[in-house]
Design a protein around this nucleic acid. Structure first.
Lengths: 194, 194
DNA sequence: CTATCAAGTATCGACACGATACGTTTCGTG
DNA sequence: CACGAAACGTATCGTGTCGATACTTGATAG
């Protein structure tokens, strides 16, 4: 009898492979590699502190040199726009162009899972998500990776009023739309006292 | 409020990426790519009907030409052995060498998850596994992929006595060790009547 | 002003990956 | 048996990822 955790590992690994293969096939039409689509997906969700090459490299777990090449390709295709930061001349700000957003829409990733998970009850979905999120957080912590969560779950986030937020780290106000994006500086709230 | 299934998709995708990055780092010592390690892992679990280049290609979702190249590299390194099938001159049989098994041992993949999942109760683990396995099966079915399960869960498998099995497809006897390996011809038992 | 560090780019080599073409073997049909 | 189709595998080529290394530029500390 194999360890239950090992079976879960195996299942996640195979699902991950399948998703990757699916991404590859989805990108064939645009002749884009999986990594390109992942970059576009990330930029679509990244907040203003996290739309840089360095942040993307950390998110994907790759080196900045590698990511730089992929970004050059995306820029050549006019799927992303690059412009220098106003404050710091070293950093490059990345943003999806309309064409880039269009590509994401055509992917239709939502459909991929809708049928695959329709048999499962919401309670089971939520339970499974919780287990995997814990595993994800643990692995990230051990490998020194950032968590890249949304502001809502971040301990720096201060809810100062209705639809009014402030990031305790940058002292800047954030819109209610902004706090549902993912951030490089994300630090999960402690949950020891459950 | 985002769809719960989408959050699970995102989590699985990120876990998959993390595992892939982990595989890459684990392979640095042997200067092996993730795909090479996945091939070794597969061959370690494949039964006698499934230890061929074609089966590996289907398992990984890649083309046979691509897989052929990776196998050439593994053979050059003496991590796998290749010899022609006795019956069918077209097929090549693959097997891990002692050196290949050694590499897998040194990876120590078990440790990766032990701490990551130690917080979760067995019941939650089992529930999460069930949800993901369903998703995996659905995705595989829709994309025409094989399931690559173990014989124990296969409808072709006949339990004819204590520790005595027969595959209904090939009419061959299988040892009790063999039925816990994964098979290219695997077809899950119907579970409509749960 | 200078040393140091960080963000990003450029370049190189190894190799994954798909596409295509090819050779070999098996199998079916007349 | 002969012929053609199909299956398994290999060879080759082009694109592009990926890490490593070296570099350019800008920010910062002393």
């Amino acid at each position: 009898m194999k360890n239950q955790a090992l079976i879960l590992l195996d299942t996640v690994e195979r699902l991950g492979n399948l998703l990757r293969v699916g991404l590859r096939q989805a990108g064939v039409a645009q002749s884009l590699q999986p990594i390109h689509l992942q970059a576009l997906l990330y930029l679509n969700e990244a907040n203003r502190y996290s739309n840089t090459p360095q942040a993307l490299a950390e998110y994907l777990g790759l080196t900045k040199g590698t990511v730089s090449q992929s970004l050059l390709l995306l820029a050549r295709r006019r799927l992303i726009a690059r412009h220098a930061d106003e404050k710091d001349g070293r950093v490059v700000r990345l943003a999806l162009t309309d064409k880039g957003k269009e590509v994401l829409k055509e992917l239709g990733l939502i459909n991929v899972w809708r049928d695959a998970l329709q048999a499962a009850s919401p309670a089971r979905l939520s339970s499974a998500t919780k287990v995997l999120k814990e595993a994800l957080a643990t692995l990230q912590a051990r490998n020194g990776h950032r968590t890249f969560g949304v502001c809502v779950t971040c301990r720096h986030n201060l809810h100062i009023g209705p639809r009014s937020y402030v990031c305790g780290l940058t002292k800047e106000k954030l819109s209610s739309r902004e706090v549902s994006k993912i951030c490089r500086e994300h630090s999960p709230v402690e949950e020891n006292a459950v």
